[in-house]
Simulated scan of single mutants.
Amino acid sequence: MNGNRYYGVRVEGAKYGVGFGSALAIAISCTNNHSILWAIIHGILGWLYVVYVALFR
């Protein structure tokens, strides 16, 4: 039983992490590019775009 509870918490954490990464990527993209199309593309890429901006800008 204890293992099932741990697994549920782990899945929920991953779900929220992906959502936050996409929202952060969209916010950064809108600020930098002022384009809805790029914001959508960067929202799909999520954390990859956030890491790119952190490393190269």
Rank of each mutant, 00 (worst) to 15 (best):
H34M: 10
I36H: 08
R57N: 15
G21A: 12
A14D: 03
L37Q: 08
Y49H: 07
R57E: 15
Y49A: 09
G21S: 15
N32G: 07
F20T: 04
H34C: 12
E12A: 11
I44H: 02
G8L: 05
H42D: 04
F56S: 10
Y6V: 12
Y6K: 07
K15M: 15
G8E: 06
R57S: 15
I26W: 07
H34V: 12
G43W: 09
G46R: 04
L55Q: 15
I36N: 08
V18W: 00
V9L: 08
A14L: 03
V50L: 01
S29G: 11
A27I: 11
V50G: 00
C30V: 11
I41C: 11
G3T: 01
Y52W: 08
R5D: 00
G46Q: 13
W38K: 14
N33R: 14
H42G: 00
S22E: 14
S29F: 12
W47E: 06
F56W: 13
L45M: 00
V11N: 10
V9D: 05
N2H: 06
Y7A: 02
T31Q: 12
R10I: 05
V53N: 05
V53L: 13
A27T: 13
G43M: 13
S22P: 01
R5M: 00
C30D: 01
I26T: 14
A27M: 10
Y49V: 07
G19Y: 11
Y16C: 04
V9S: 08
V9I: 07
C30F: 10
I44F: 01
L24M: 12
I41S: 13
A23I: 11
N33M: 10
A54F: 15
R57D: 15
Y52L: 05
N32I: 15
V50R: 02
G17Y: 04
S29E: 15
A27E: 04
W47M: 10
G43D: 11
W47R: 07
Y7R: 03
V11T: 13
T31P: 00
V11Y: 15
A27P: 06
G13S: 07
L48P: 01
G43L: 09
R10F: 10
K15Y: 15
W38T: 12
R57H: 14
Y6H: 05
G8F: 03
A25S: 14
M1V: 00
G8S: 04
S22T: 08
G19A: 11
A14Q: 03
C30P: 02
A54T: 11
N33H: 14
V51S: 06
Y6I: 09
I41H: 12
L24S: 07
